[in-house]
Write a protein that binds this DNA or RNA. Structure first.
Lengths: 277, 277
DNA sequence: AGAGATGAACTCAGTATGAGAACTACTCAG
DNA sequence: CTGAGTAGTTCTCATACTGAGTTCATCTCT
Protein backbone atom coordinates (compact mmCIF):
# COMPACT_ATOMS: atom_id res chain seq x y z
CA UNK A 1 0.00 0.00 0.00
CA UNK A 2 0.96 3.57 -0.19
CA UNK A 3 -0.63 6.76 1.10
CA UNK A 4 -3.85 6.21 2.74
CA UNK A 5 -3.98 8.30 5.84
CA UNK A 6 -7.62 7.88 6.61
CA UNK A 7 -8.69 4.78 4.78
CA UNK A 8 -9.20 6.76 1.67
CA UNK A 9 -12.62 7.03 0.25
CA UNK A 10 -13.04 6.72 -3.46
CA UNK A 11 -11.94 10.26 -3.93
CA UNK A 12 -8.98 11.07 -1.79
CA UNK A 13 -8.08 14.32 -3.43
CA UNK A 14 -11.37 16.02 -2.75
CA UNK A 15 -11.02 15.51 0.97
CA UNK A 16 -7.34 16.12 1.27
CA UNK A 17 -6.06 19.10 3.18
CA UNK A 18 -2.35 19.34 3.89
CA UNK A 19 -3.07 21.13 7.12
CA UNK A 20 -4.51 17.97 8.57
CA UNK A 21 -1.08 16.43 8.65
CA UNK A 22 2.09 17.03 10.55
CA UNK A 23 4.61 18.33 8.09
CA UNK A 24 7.49 16.20 6.96
CA UNK A 25 10.28 17.69 4.93
CA UNK A 26 12.15 15.70 2.31
CA UNK A 27 15.65 16.69 1.36
CA UNK A 28 18.43 15.24 -0.74
CA UNK A 29 22.02 15.23 0.45
CA UNK A 30 24.98 14.32 -1.70
CA UNK A 31 28.20 12.56 -0.80
CA UNK A 32 30.35 13.66 -3.76
CA UNK A 33 33.73 11.99 -3.92
CA UNK A 34 36.76 12.66 -6.06
CA UNK A 35 40.48 12.02 -6.01
CA UNK A 36 42.86 14.94 -5.65
CA UNK A 37 46.61 14.61 -5.26
CA UNK A 38 46.19 10.92 -4.72
CA UNK A 39 43.84 11.37 -1.77
CA UNK A 40 40.10 10.86 -1.51
CA UNK A 41 38.17 14.12 -1.10
CA UNK A 42 34.54 14.84 -0.33
CA UNK A 43 32.62 17.95 -1.28
CA UNK A 44 31.45 19.91 1.77
CA UNK A 45 29.77 23.24 2.34
CA UNK A 46 30.04 25.41 5.41
CA UNK A 47 26.71 26.32 6.90
CA UNK A 48 25.93 30.02 7.00
CA UNK A 49 22.98 29.84 9.35
CA UNK A 50 21.52 27.97 12.29
CA UNK A 51 21.34 25.23 13.20
CA UNK A 52 24.94 24.11 13.11
CA UNK A 53 26.06 27.47 11.69
CA UNK A 54 29.75 27.43 10.85
CA UNK A 55 29.92 23.67 10.74
CA UNK A 56 30.46 21.67 7.59
CA UNK A 57 27.76 19.66 5.91
CA UNK A 58 27.04 17.65 2.82
CA UNK A 59 25.56 19.70 0.00
CA UNK A 60 21.82 19.21 -0.19
CA UNK A 61 18.43 20.74 0.21
CA UNK A 62 14.72 20.43 -0.30
CA UNK A 63 13.11 18.35 -2.96
CA UNK A 64 10.69 20.40 -5.00
CA UNK A 65 7.34 18.80 -4.38
CA UNK A 66 5.69 20.28 -7.41
CA UNK A 67 2.45 21.58 -5.94
CA UNK A 68 0.94 24.99 -6.62
CA UNK A 69 2.23 26.76 -3.52
CA UNK A 70 5.81 27.26 -4.51
CA UNK A 71 5.41 27.21 -8.24
CA UNK A 72 8.27 24.85 -8.84
CA UNK A 73 8.24 21.83 -11.11
CA UNK A 74 8.13 18.46 -9.43
CA UNK A 75 11.54 16.90 -9.74
CA UNK A 76 12.80 13.36 -9.40
CA UNK A 77 15.20 12.59 -6.58
CA UNK A 78 18.36 12.25 -8.70
CA UNK A 79 17.53 15.53 -10.44
CA UNK A 80 17.20 17.22 -7.09
CA UNK A 81 20.63 15.88 -6.13
CA UNK A 82 22.25 17.28 -9.26
CA UNK A 83 20.49 20.60 -8.82
CA UNK A 84 21.64 20.97 -5.22
CA UNK A 85 25.17 20.07 -6.19
CA UNK A 86 25.10 22.77 -8.84
CA UNK A 87 23.39 25.42 -6.72
CA UNK A 88 25.51 25.18 -3.65
CA UNK A 89 28.88 24.69 -5.24
CA UNK A 90 28.72 26.43 -8.60
CA UNK A 91 29.68 23.22 -10.37
CA UNK A 92 27.74 23.39 -13.59
CA UNK A 93 25.50 20.51 -14.47
CA UNK A 94 25.24 18.45 -17.62
CA UNK A 95 27.85 19.05 -20.23
CA UNK A 96 29.94 20.96 -17.74
CA UNK A 97 32.03 19.66 -14.92
CA UNK A 98 29.18 17.51 -13.63
CA UNK A 99 28.71 15.86 -17.00
CA UNK A 100 30.61 12.72 -16.22
CA UNK A 101 29.63 12.09 -12.64
CA UNK A 102 28.15 8.82 -11.62
CA UNK A 103 25.21 9.30 -9.26
CA UNK A 104 23.36 6.69 -7.26
CA UNK A 105 21.10 6.59 -4.27
CA UNK A 106 22.85 5.78 -1.03
CA UNK A 107 20.11 5.53 1.57
CA UNK A 108 17.49 7.45 3.46
CA UNK A 109 17.94 8.90 6.92
CA UNK A 110 14.87 9.77 8.88
CA UNK A 111 15.38 9.35 12.62
CA UNK A 112 13.20 11.69 14.63
CA UNK A 113 15.38 14.44 16.01
CA UNK A 114 18.09 14.28 13.39
CA UNK A 115 17.15 17.86 12.53
CA UNK A 116 16.25 20.07 15.50
CA UNK A 117 13.74 22.12 13.54
CA UNK A 118 11.27 19.57 12.29
CA UNK A 119 10.89 16.05 10.98
CA UNK A 120 13.24 15.74 8.05
CA UNK A 121 13.71 12.71 5.85
CA UNK A 122 16.94 12.91 3.87
CA UNK A 123 17.55 10.85 0.80
CA UNK A 124 21.32 10.63 0.54
CA UNK A 125 23.04 10.14 -2.79
CA UNK A 126 26.54 9.12 -3.69
CA UNK A 127 28.46 10.74 -6.55
CA UNK A 128 31.80 9.74 -8.06
CA UNK A 129 33.58 12.28 -10.18
CA UNK A 130 36.90 12.72 -11.93
CA UNK A 131 38.97 15.62 -10.73
CA UNK A 132 36.75 18.70 -10.66
CA UNK A 133 37.48 22.41 -10.22
CA UNK A 134 37.21 24.06 -6.84
CA UNK A 135 33.60 24.78 -5.98
CA UNK A 136 32.18 28.22 -5.28
CA UNK A 137 29.85 28.77 -2.38
CA UNK A 138 26.26 29.49 -3.38
CA UNK A 139 22.78 29.23 -1.96
CA UNK A 140 22.95 28.90 1.81
CA UNK A 141 26.58 27.89 1.81
CA UNK A 142 29.08 30.24 3.41
CA UNK A 143 31.86 28.26 1.83
CA UNK A 144 32.34 25.14 -0.24
CA UNK A 145 35.42 22.99 -0.68
CA UNK A 146 36.83 19.60 -1.49
CA UNK A 147 37.99 18.27 1.86
CA UNK A 148 40.32 15.29 2.29
CA UNK A 149 38.28 12.54 3.88
CA UNK A 150 41.27 11.68 6.00
CA UNK A 151 41.04 15.06 7.74
CA UNK A 152 37.54 14.44 9.06
CA UNK A 153 38.56 11.83 11.61
CA UNK A 154 35.65 9.54 10.91
CA UNK A 155 35.17 6.61 13.26
CA UNK A 156 33.75 3.24 12.43
CA UNK A 157 30.61 3.98 14.35
CA UNK A 158 29.71 6.92 12.15
CA UNK A 159 31.04 9.71 14.35
CA UNK A 160 34.10 11.93 14.37
CA UNK A 161 37.13 11.59 16.61
CA UNK A 162 37.42 14.25 19.27
CA UNK A 163 39.76 17.05 18.29
CA UNK A 164 38.82 16.99 14.64
CA UNK A 165 38.75 20.55 13.34
CA UNK A 166 36.00 20.30 10.78
CA UNK A 167 32.89 19.13 12.58
CA UNK A 168 30.04 17.78 10.49
CA UNK A 169 26.47 18.95 11.05
CA UNK A 170 23.41 16.77 11.63
CA UNK A 171 24.09 13.06 11.14
CA UNK A 172 26.29 13.78 8.17
CA UNK A 173 29.26 11.95 9.65
CA UNK A 174 27.14 8.81 9.64
CA UNK A 175 25.93 9.43 6.07
CA UNK A 176 29.46 10.10 4.88
CA UNK A 177 30.73 6.94 6.56
CA UNK A 178 28.03 4.93 4.87
CA UNK A 179 28.88 6.55 1.55
CA UNK A 180 32.54 5.71 1.91
CA UNK A 181 31.78 2.12 2.73
CA UNK A 182 29.50 1.93 -0.30
CA UNK A 183 32.21 3.43 -2.48
CA UNK A 184 34.78 0.95 -1.22
CA UNK A 185 32.45 -1.95 -1.86
CA UNK A 186 31.45 -0.74 -5.31
CA UNK A 187 35.04 -0.62 -6.47
CA UNK A 188 35.20 -4.32 -5.84
CA UNK A 189 32.57 -5.46 -8.25
CA UNK A 190 31.91 -2.58 -10.64
CA UNK A 191 34.17 -0.73 -13.06
CA UNK A 192 33.30 2.50 -11.29
CA UNK A 193 36.88 3.37 -10.48
CA UNK A 194 37.18 4.46 -14.08
CA UNK A 195 34.64 7.20 -13.28
CA UNK A 196 37.27 8.79 -11.07
CA UNK A 197 39.69 8.93 -13.98
CA UNK A 198 39.22 10.95 -17.11
CA UNK A 199 38.41 9.40 -20.47
CA UNK A 200 41.81 7.80 -20.87
CA UNK A 201 43.94 6.53 -18.06
CA UNK A 202 46.80 4.23 -17.26
CA UNK A 203 46.70 1.13 -15.11
CA UNK A 204 48.84 2.79 -12.44
CA UNK A 205 46.42 5.73 -12.35
CA UNK A 206 43.56 3.30 -11.88
CA UNK A 207 45.49 1.59 -9.15
CA UNK A 208 45.98 4.93 -7.42
CA UNK A 209 42.19 5.30 -7.32
CA UNK A 210 41.79 1.96 -5.62
CA UNK A 211 44.56 2.77 -3.18
CA UNK A 212 43.05 6.14 -2.31
CA UNK A 213 39.54 4.79 -1.75
CA UNK A 214 40.56 1.61 0.02
CA UNK A 215 43.32 3.35 1.95
CA UNK A 216 45.91 0.66 1.39
CA UNK A 217 48.64 -0.15 -1.08
CA UNK A 218 48.10 -2.81 -3.68
CA UNK A 219 50.54 -5.17 -5.31
CA UNK A 220 51.27 -3.46 -8.64
CA UNK A 221 51.95 -6.62 -10.60
CA UNK A 222 48.89 -8.49 -9.42
CA UNK A 223 46.66 -5.45 -9.90
CA UNK A 224 47.88 -5.07 -13.45
CA UNK A 225 47.28 -8.72 -14.23
CA UNK A 226 43.85 -8.64 -12.66
CA UNK A 227 42.60 -5.51 -14.42
CA UNK A 228 43.60 -6.84 -17.81
CA UNK A 229 42.15 -10.28 -17.17
CA UNK A 230 38.66 -9.16 -16.11
CA UNK A 231 36.65 -9.05 -19.33
CA UNK A 232 35.29 -5.63 -20.23
CA UNK A 233 36.97 -3.68 -17.46
CA UNK A 234 39.36 -1.69 -19.62
CA UNK A 235 40.23 -1.69 -23.29
CA UNK A 236 43.48 -0.57 -24.78
CA UNK A 237 43.63 2.61 -26.81
CA UNK A 238 46.87 1.44 -28.37
CA UNK A 239 48.46 4.70 -27.32
CA UNK A 240 51.10 5.34 -24.70
CA UNK A 241 51.18 8.08 -22.13
CA UNK A 242 53.49 10.91 -23.07
CA UNK A 243 55.06 10.95 -19.66
CA UNK A 244 56.60 8.23 -17.57
CA UNK A 245 55.91 7.72 -13.90
CA UNK A 246 56.40 10.71 -11.64
CA UNK A 247 59.71 9.51 -10.37
CA UNK A 248 60.94 7.62 -13.40
CA UNK A 249 60.00 4.48 -15.20
CA UNK A 250 58.72 3.67 -18.67
CA UNK A 251 55.71 5.39 -20.24
CA UNK A 252 52.59 3.48 -19.27
CA UNK A 253 50.01 2.48 -21.87
CA UNK A 254 46.65 4.17 -22.09
CA UNK A 255 43.28 2.51 -21.62
CA UNK A 256 39.66 3.59 -21.53
CA UNK A 257 36.70 2.10 -19.66
CA UNK A 258 35.35 -1.09 -21.18
CA UNK A 259 31.70 -2.06 -21.54
CA UNK A 260 31.35 -4.33 -18.53
CA UNK A 261 28.85 -3.27 -15.88
CA UNK A 262 30.03 -5.77 -13.33
CA UNK A 263 33.51 -7.09 -12.71
CA UNK A 264 33.77 -10.84 -12.72
CA UNK A 265 35.59 -12.16 -10.92
CA UNK A 266 35.57 -9.19 -8.58
CA UNK A 267 38.64 -7.36 -7.27
CA UNK A 268 38.48 -8.10 -3.58
CA UNK A 269 39.92 -5.86 -0.91
CA UNK A 270 42.87 -7.48 0.83
CA UNK A 271 41.81 -6.35 4.29
CA UNK A 272 38.43 -7.96 4.57
CA UNK A 273 39.45 -10.52 7.18
CA UNK A 274 38.95 -8.12 10.05
CA UNK A 275 35.46 -7.02 9.07
CA UNK A 276 34.01 -10.44 8.81
CA UNK A 277 32.74 -10.78 12.35
CA UNK B 1 22.97 20.90 4.07
CA UNK B 2 19.56 19.93 5.10
CA UNK B 3 16.29 21.81 5.32
CA UNK B 4 16.65 25.39 4.60
CA UNK B 5 13.81 26.45 2.44
CA UNK B 6 14.29 30.15 2.73
CA UNK B 7 17.83 30.70 3.89
CA UNK B 8 16.77 30.16 7.41
CA UNK B 9 17.21 32.97 9.84
CA UNK B 10 18.61 32.21 13.24
CA UNK B 11 15.21 31.06 14.38
CA UNK B 12 13.63 28.91 11.79
CA UNK B 13 10.90 27.54 13.93
CA UNK B 14 9.36 30.89 14.71
CA UNK B 15 8.80 31.66 11.07
CA UNK B 16 7.83 28.23 9.92
CA UNK B 17 4.37 27.55 8.64
CA UNK B 18 3.65 24.22 7.00
CA UNK B 19 1.10 25.83 4.76
CA UNK B 20 3.85 27.68 2.95
CA UNK B 21 5.03 24.42 1.45
CA UNK B 22 3.64 21.96 -0.99
CA UNK B 23 2.87 18.82 0.91
CA UNK B 24 5.01 15.73 0.50
CA UNK B 25 3.95 12.46 2.01
CA UNK B 26 6.46 9.94 3.25
CA UNK B 27 5.52 6.29 3.41
CA UNK B 28 7.27 3.02 4.10
CA UNK B 29 6.66 -0.04 1.98
CA UNK B 30 7.91 -3.50 2.82
CA UNK B 31 9.07 -6.30 0.57
CA UNK B 32 8.70 -9.23 2.95
CA UNK B 33 10.08 -12.49 1.62
CA UNK B 34 9.80 -16.02 2.90
CA UNK B 35 10.09 -19.56 1.58
CA UNK B 36 7.00 -21.75 1.43
CA UNK B 37 6.91 -25.21 -0.11
CA UNK B 38 10.32 -24.61 -1.57
CA UNK B 39 9.23 -21.49 -3.44
CA UNK B 40 9.95 -17.84 -2.74
CA UNK B 41 6.88 -15.91 -1.61
CA UNK B 42 6.26 -12.23 -1.04
CA UNK B 43 3.70 -10.71 1.30
CA UNK B 44 1.08 -8.69 -0.57
CA UNK B 45 -2.15 -6.96 0.38
CA UNK B 46 -5.10 -6.32 -1.88
CA UNK B 47 -6.14 -2.70 -2.01
CA UNK B 48 -9.62 -1.97 -0.81
CA UNK B 49 -9.90 1.57 -2.12
CA UNK B 50 -8.83 3.86 -4.94
CA UNK B 51 -6.48 4.31 -6.51
CA UNK B 52 -5.64 0.85 -7.79
CA UNK B 53 -8.55 -0.67 -5.83
CA UNK B 54 -8.56 -4.44 -6.16
CA UNK B 55 -4.95 -4.60 -7.21
CA UNK B 56 -2.19 -6.05 -5.07
CA UNK B 57 0.42 -3.94 -3.36
CA UNK B 58 3.27 -4.16 -0.92
CA UNK B 59 2.24 -3.60 2.68
CA UNK B 60 3.06 -0.11 3.78
CA UNK B 61 1.74 3.25 4.86
CA UNK B 62 2.47 6.64 6.27
CA UNK B 63 5.34 7.44 8.55
CA UNK B 64 4.18 9.12 11.71
CA UNK B 65 5.79 12.52 11.63
CA UNK B 66 5.36 13.21 15.30
CA UNK B 67 4.01 16.72 15.27
CA UNK B 68 1.07 17.94 17.34
CA UNK B 69 -1.63 17.63 14.70
CA UNK B 70 -2.14 13.91 14.72
CA UNK B 71 -0.95 13.20 18.18
CA UNK B 72 1.20 10.28 17.23
CA UNK B 73 4.72 9.63 18.42
CA UNK B 74 7.47 10.27 15.92
CA UNK B 75 8.78 6.94 14.76
CA UNK B 76 11.96 5.87 13.05
CA UNK B 77 11.72 4.41 9.56
CA UNK B 78 12.40 0.77 10.50
CA UNK B 79 9.82 1.02 13.29
CA UNK B 80 7.28 2.29 10.82
CA UNK B 81 8.02 -0.67 8.57
CA UNK B 82 7.43 -3.16 11.37
CA UNK B 83 4.26 -1.38 12.44
CA UNK B 84 2.80 -1.43 8.95
CA UNK B 85 3.65 -5.08 8.54
CA UNK B 86 1.84 -5.82 11.75
CA UNK B 87 -1.16 -3.59 11.10
CA UNK B 88 -1.99 -4.70 7.63
CA UNK B 89 -1.34 -8.39 7.96
CA UNK B 90 -2.05 -9.25 11.56
CA UNK B 91 1.45 -10.64 11.97
CA UNK B 92 2.36 -9.72 15.50
CA UNK B 93 5.55 -7.81 16.09
CA UNK B 94 8.40 -8.51 18.48
CA UNK B 95 8.34 -11.78 20.26
CA UNK B 96 5.67 -13.06 17.94
CA UNK B 97 5.96 -14.21 14.38
CA UNK B 98 7.85 -11.09 13.42
CA UNK B 99 10.41 -11.61 16.12
CA UNK B 100 13.04 -13.19 13.95
CA UNK B 101 12.74 -11.18 10.79
CA UNK B 102 15.71 -9.44 9.33
CA UNK B 103 14.82 -5.92 8.17
CA UNK B 104 16.90 -3.54 6.11
CA UNK B 105 16.33 -0.49 4.01
CA UNK B 106 16.03 -1.19 0.32
CA UNK B 107 15.77 2.19 -1.35
CA UNK B 108 13.61 5.26 -1.75
CA UNK B 109 11.20 5.83 -4.60
CA UNK B 110 10.04 9.35 -5.28
CA UNK B 111 9.34 9.96 -8.94
CA UNK B 112 6.70 12.61 -9.47
CA UNK B 113 3.51 10.93 -10.54
CA UNK B 114 4.18 7.56 -8.98
CA UNK B 115 1.09 8.16 -6.86
CA UNK B 116 -1.77 9.90 -8.65
CA UNK B 117 -2.98 11.69 -5.55
CA UNK B 118 0.00 13.68 -4.44
CA UNK B 119 3.73 13.71 -4.18
CA UNK B 120 4.70 10.59 -2.27
CA UNK B 121 8.19 9.52 -1.29
CA UNK B 122 8.31 5.84 -0.36
CA UNK B 123 11.11 4.37 1.67
CA UNK B 124 11.10 0.70 0.74
CA UNK B 125 12.36 -1.94 3.15
CA UNK B 126 13.32 -5.53 2.67
CA UNK B 127 12.42 -8.24 5.20
CA UNK B 128 13.53 -11.86 5.33
CA UNK B 129 11.57 -14.24 7.48
CA UNK B 130 11.37 -17.92 8.23
CA UNK B 131 8.08 -19.55 7.38
CA UNK B 132 5.30 -17.43 8.89
CA UNK B 133 1.59 -18.05 9.36
CA UNK B 134 -0.92 -16.82 6.81
CA UNK B 135 -1.59 -13.12 7.30
CA UNK B 136 -4.96 -11.60 8.06
CA UNK B 137 -6.12 -8.52 6.28
CA UNK B 138 -6.24 -5.40 8.40
CA UNK B 139 -6.14 -1.66 8.06
CA UNK B 140 -6.88 -0.67 4.46
CA UNK B 141 -6.19 -4.12 3.13
CA UNK B 142 -9.08 -6.05 1.63
CA UNK B 143 -6.97 -9.16 1.70
CA UNK B 144 -3.44 -10.21 2.53
CA UNK B 145 -1.50 -13.25 1.42
CA UNK B 146 1.86 -14.81 0.75
CA UNK B 147 2.09 -14.88 -3.02
CA UNK B 148 4.62 -16.96 -4.98
CA UNK B 149 6.98 -14.51 -6.63
CA UNK B 150 6.98 -16.71 -9.69
CA UNK B 151 3.28 -16.03 -10.23
CA UNK B 152 3.77 -12.29 -10.59
CA UNK B 153 5.46 -12.46 -13.98
CA UNK B 154 8.08 -9.88 -13.16
CA UNK B 155 10.25 -8.70 -16.01
CA UNK B 156 13.83 -7.57 -15.84
CA UNK B 157 12.83 -3.99 -16.48
CA UNK B 158 10.70 -3.83 -13.34
CA UNK B 159 7.31 -4.45 -14.93
CA UNK B 160 4.95 -7.41 -15.18
CA UNK B 161 4.41 -9.62 -18.17
CA UNK B 162 1.07 -9.11 -19.94
CA UNK B 163 -1.50 -11.64 -18.89
CA UNK B 164 -0.34 -11.85 -15.30
CA UNK B 165 -3.36 -12.22 -13.08
CA UNK B 166 -2.20 -10.38 -10.02
CA UNK B 167 -1.34 -6.84 -11.09
CA UNK B 168 0.75 -4.73 -8.75
CA UNK B 169 -0.25 -1.18 -7.87
CA UNK B 170 1.90 1.94 -8.14
CA UNK B 171 5.52 1.18 -9.01
CA UNK B 172 5.52 -1.81 -6.72
CA UNK B 173 6.62 -4.19 -9.46
CA UNK B 174 9.79 -2.14 -9.75
CA UNK B 175 10.29 -2.06 -5.98
CA UNK B 176 9.72 -5.79 -5.70
CA UNK B 177 12.16 -6.45 -8.54
CA UNK B 178 14.77 -4.35 -6.80
CA UNK B 179 14.09 -6.19 -3.55
CA UNK B 180 14.52 -9.57 -5.18
CA UNK B 181 17.77 -8.56 -6.77
CA UNK B 182 18.99 -7.27 -3.41
CA UNK B 183 17.98 -10.53 -1.75
CA UNK B 184 19.77 -12.59 -4.38
CA UNK B 185 22.89 -10.52 -3.98
CA UNK B 186 22.80 -10.62 -0.19
CA UNK B 187 22.72 -14.38 -0.12
CA UNK B 188 26.07 -14.33 -1.84
CA UNK B 189 28.06 -12.52 0.77
CA UNK B 190 26.04 -12.63 3.99
CA UNK B 191 24.78 -15.53 6.08
CA UNK B 192 21.25 -14.21 5.66
CA UNK B 193 19.90 -17.39 4.15
CA UNK B 194 19.85 -18.75 7.67
CA UNK B 195 17.21 -16.11 8.46
CA UNK B 196 14.85 -17.98 6.16
CA UNK B 197 15.36 -21.15 8.15
CA UNK B 198 14.35 -21.68 11.73
CA UNK B 199 16.82 -21.90 14.58
CA UNK B 200 18.19 -25.25 13.49
CA UNK B 201 18.44 -26.41 9.93
CA UNK B 202 20.18 -28.89 7.70
CA UNK B 203 22.54 -28.13 4.86
CA UNK B 204 20.01 -29.36 2.29
CA UNK B 205 17.40 -27.04 3.77
CA UNK B 206 19.82 -24.18 3.49
CA UNK B 207 20.54 -25.18 -0.09
CA UNK B 208 16.81 -25.15 -0.81
CA UNK B 209 16.74 -21.51 0.31
CA UNK B 210 19.49 -20.59 -2.11
CA UNK B 211 17.80 -22.50 -4.89
CA UNK B 212 14.45 -20.85 -4.25
CA UNK B 213 15.87 -17.32 -4.15
CA UNK B 214 18.32 -17.73 -7.00
CA UNK B 215 15.92 -19.80 -9.04
CA UNK B 216 18.43 -22.42 -10.05
CA UNK B 217 19.67 -25.76 -8.84
CA UNK B 218 22.98 -26.03 -7.08
CA UNK B 219 25.47 -28.84 -6.98
CA UNK B 220 24.71 -30.53 -3.66
CA UNK B 221 28.24 -31.74 -3.00
CA UNK B 222 29.95 -28.48 -3.77
CA UNK B 223 27.39 -26.48 -1.80
CA UNK B 224 27.90 -28.70 1.20
CA UNK B 225 31.67 -28.36 1.03
CA UNK B 226 31.42 -24.62 0.59
CA UNK B 227 29.04 -23.96 3.47
CA UNK B 228 31.18 -25.94 5.88
CA UNK B 229 34.41 -24.31 4.70
CA UNK B 230 33.32 -20.69 5.09
CA UNK B 231 34.30 -19.72 8.62
CA UNK B 232 31.40 -18.73 10.84
CA UNK B 233 28.61 -19.51 8.41
CA UNK B 234 27.13 -22.46 10.27
CA UNK B 235 28.06 -24.38 13.36
CA UNK B 236 27.16 -27.94 14.11
CA UNK B 237 24.67 -28.75 16.84
CA UNK B 238 25.94 -32.32 16.96
CA UNK B 239 22.41 -33.54 16.47
CA UNK B 240 20.82 -35.25 13.51
CA UNK B 241 17.47 -34.56 11.96
CA UNK B 242 14.83 -37.07 12.97
CA UNK B 243 13.64 -37.54 9.44
CA UNK B 244 15.49 -38.38 6.26
CA UNK B 245 14.95 -36.57 2.98
CA UNK B 246 11.40 -36.37 1.65
CA UNK B 247 11.90 -39.15 -0.81
CA UNK B 248 14.50 -41.22 0.98
CA UNK B 249 18.09 -40.83 1.94
CA UNK B 250 19.96 -40.66 5.23
CA UNK B 251 19.11 -38.27 8.08
CA UNK B 252 20.96 -35.00 7.57
CA UNK B 253 22.85 -33.33 10.40
CA UNK B 254 21.60 -30.20 12.10
CA UNK B 255 23.35 -26.82 12.18
CA UNK B 256 22.58 -23.36 13.46
CA UNK B 257 23.73 -19.96 12.18
CA UNK B 258 27.32 -19.09 13.03
CA UNK B 259 28.64 -15.71 14.13
CA UNK B 260 30.00 -14.45 10.82
CA UNK B 261 28.44 -11.28 9.47
CA UNK B 262 30.02 -11.60 6.06
CA UNK B 263 30.82 -14.73 4.10
CA UNK B 264 34.38 -14.95 2.94
CA UNK B 265 34.97 -16.15 0.38
CA UNK B 266 31.48 -15.46 -0.88
CA UNK B 267 29.12 -18.02 -2.41
CA UNK B 268 28.79 -16.76 -5.95
CA UNK B 269 25.78 -17.35 -8.14
CA UNK B 270 26.62 -19.65 -11.04
CA UNK B 271 24.67 -17.64 -13.58
CA UNK B 272 26.41 -14.32 -13.30
CA UNK B 273 28.03 -14.50 -16.73
CA UNK B 274 24.95 -13.20 -18.49
CA UNK B 275 24.41 -10.18 -16.28
CA UNK B 276 27.83 -8.79 -16.62
CA UNK B 277 27.27 -6.54 -19.63
C1' DA C 1 76.42 8.63 -16.75
C1' DG C 2 74.57 6.31 -12.92
C1' DA C 3 71.17 5.53 -9.22
C1' DG C 4 66.74 4.75 -8.22
C1' DA C 5 61.92 4.19 -9.49
C1' DT C 6 58.37 2.33 -12.29
C1' DG C 7 55.52 -0.34 -15.93
C1' DA C 8 54.93 -4.72 -17.65
C1' DA C 9 55.44 -9.56 -17.76
C1' DC C 10 56.52 -13.92 -15.64
C1' DT C 11 56.98 -17.83 -12.02
C1' DC C 12 55.37 -20.60 -8.32
C1' DA C 13 52.86 -22.25 -4.47
C1' DG C 14 48.53 -22.25 -2.07
C1' DT C 15 43.59 -21.96 -2.32
C1' DA C 16 38.94 -22.11 -4.40
C1' DT C 17 35.70 -23.94 -7.77
C1' DG C 18 33.01 -27.00 -11.06
C1' DA C 19 32.01 -31.58 -12.31
C1' DG C 20 31.48 -36.00 -11.29
C1' DA C 21 31.81 -40.48 -8.65
C1' DA C 22 31.48 -43.34 -4.48
C1' DC C 23 29.36 -44.88 -0.50
C1' DT C 24 25.80 -45.09 2.77
C1' DA C 25 21.23 -44.53 4.84
C1' DC C 26 16.89 -43.84 4.28
C1' DT C 27 11.67 -44.08 1.98
C1' DC C 28 8.44 -46.27 -0.66
C1' DA C 29 6.14 -49.56 -3.87
C1' DG C 30 5.11 -54.08 -4.45
C1' DC D 1 10.31 -58.03 3.57
C1' DT D 2 12.86 -56.75 -0.26
C1' DG D 3 14.65 -54.16 -3.97
C1' DA D 4 14.60 -49.75 -6.47
C1' DG D 5 15.29 -45.24 -6.14
C1' DT D 6 16.53 -40.95 -3.65
C1' DA D 7 19.39 -38.10 -1.09
C1' DG D 8 23.26 -36.76 2.48
C1' DT D 9 28.04 -36.76 2.82
C1' DT D 10 32.68 -37.26 1.38
C1' DC D 11 36.33 -37.62 -2.30
C1' DT D 12 38.91 -36.97 -6.49
C1' DC D 13 40.69 -34.33 -10.13
C1' DA D 14 41.31 -30.76 -13.41
C1' DT D 15 41.06 -25.90 -13.85
C1' DA D 16 41.07 -21.14 -12.28
C1' DC D 17 42.36 -17.42 -9.28
C1' DT D 18 45.35 -15.13 -5.81
C1' DG D 19 49.37 -13.42 -3.17
C1' DA D 20 54.17 -12.91 -3.19
C1' DG D 21 58.21 -12.37 -5.36
C1' DT D 22 61.48 -11.89 -9.62
C1' DT D 23 63.07 -10.06 -14.01
C1' DC D 24 63.90 -6.68 -17.29
C1' DA D 25 63.51 -2.63 -19.95
C1' DT D 26 62.62 2.33 -19.71
C1' DC D 27 62.31 6.55 -17.79
C1' DT D 28 63.48 10.73 -14.34
C1' DC D 29 66.50 12.98 -11.59
C1' DT D 30 70.90 14.16 -9.68
Amino acid sequence: MTPDPRHDESDFLANYDPRDYDPVAVTVDVVALTIRDGALHVLLVRRGSAPYAGMWALPGGFVQAGGPLQGAEAEDLPDAAVRELAEETGLSAKGGALGRVHLEQLGTYGSPGRDPRMRVISVAHLAFAPELPDPEAGGDAADAAWVPVEALGLTESGGQRPGTTRRLAFDHARILSDGLERARAKLEYTPLAAAFCGGEFTIPELRAVYEAVWGEELHAGNFHRKVLSVPGFVESTGATSDRGGRRGGPRPRLYRAGDARLLHPALLRPSREEEIR
